[in-house]
Each structure stands twice: as structure tokens, then as C-alpha cells.
Amino acid sequence: MKEIIAIVRMNKTNATKKALVECGAAGFTATKVSGRGRLVEDATVIAARKADLMRLAETEDLLETEMLIDGFLDGTRFFPRRIFSVVAHDADVPKIVAAITKANKTSYQVGDGKIFVTPLVDAYRVRTGESGDAAI
């Protein structure tokens, strides 16, 4: 038994839910969290993203907008994310990880989230009292 902890973008929640249903692991628990990743070392990624955002900006108050965008991109800010916890049989883990990855990958290069797979010692179903693999 493994627990798959996936941190995804807020607007990918529905895509992730759909992907989980399609790969046969419909059960999950999700919460709203805020988080940040490690600092982005590749300056070109940030520069490209900044150029994208600046293109959307109004023409007046450009300096203020630039300060705001810099604040967003410097990596110290916490962004809202959704955290999914899925419990699965060992054999299903690669399939589920691949499905979550596929649903969440974007072209932004950073901020798509992380997936952690942790071992689970035991699981119980409250309704029947089953334990171990039968409880999943």
C-alpha cells in the first residue's frame, strides 16, 4: 500500500479528479493549501513568464505593475494549491502517478506541482473493519 500525495494547481482540480476516475482510482481526499517550490535558478524561465504577464498589463502604471509581477515571480510568495491524497495498491502507483502528471503538466515549466509516494503501514475500512489491501 502506498499513499500518493499530489500538490496541484487550483484550476487543475477538476482535470485531476477526472484523470483519477479514468485510471480507476476514484477515491481521494483533497484540501486547500498554500505553498511554494524551490527558488527558480534558470532566469530565462522567469524572464519569459514576466514578458507574458507584462503584455497583459494596462499601459498606465507600468512601474507599479512591474513591481507587482516581480513580487509574484521572486519565489518567496505562497500560492494557493490543492493537495490530493490517494491511497493505492503498490501495482497501481505508476499508473496513477502518470495520470496525475499528464493532467497537470503545463507549458509554464515551473509551478506544476509535486507528487510524493509514501509507504503506508496499514489501512482500515471503518464500515466493515477490513484491513490492509482489502480496505483500499
Binding site: K2, V8, V93, V97, I100, T101, N104, K105, T106, Y108, Q109, V110, G111, D112, G113, K114, I115, F116, V117, T118, P119
Partner: peptide, 11 residues
């Protein structure tokens, strides 16, 4: 423990 770690953007 964490058995596996995946970064979505790098996958």
C-alpha cells in the same frame, strides 16, 4: 519516508 518523488513540470 518518501519512496518516490516526481516533479510534474519536469516529467
Amino acid at each position: 519516508a518518501i519512496d518516490e518523488e516526481h516533479t510534474v513540470s519536469a516529467a
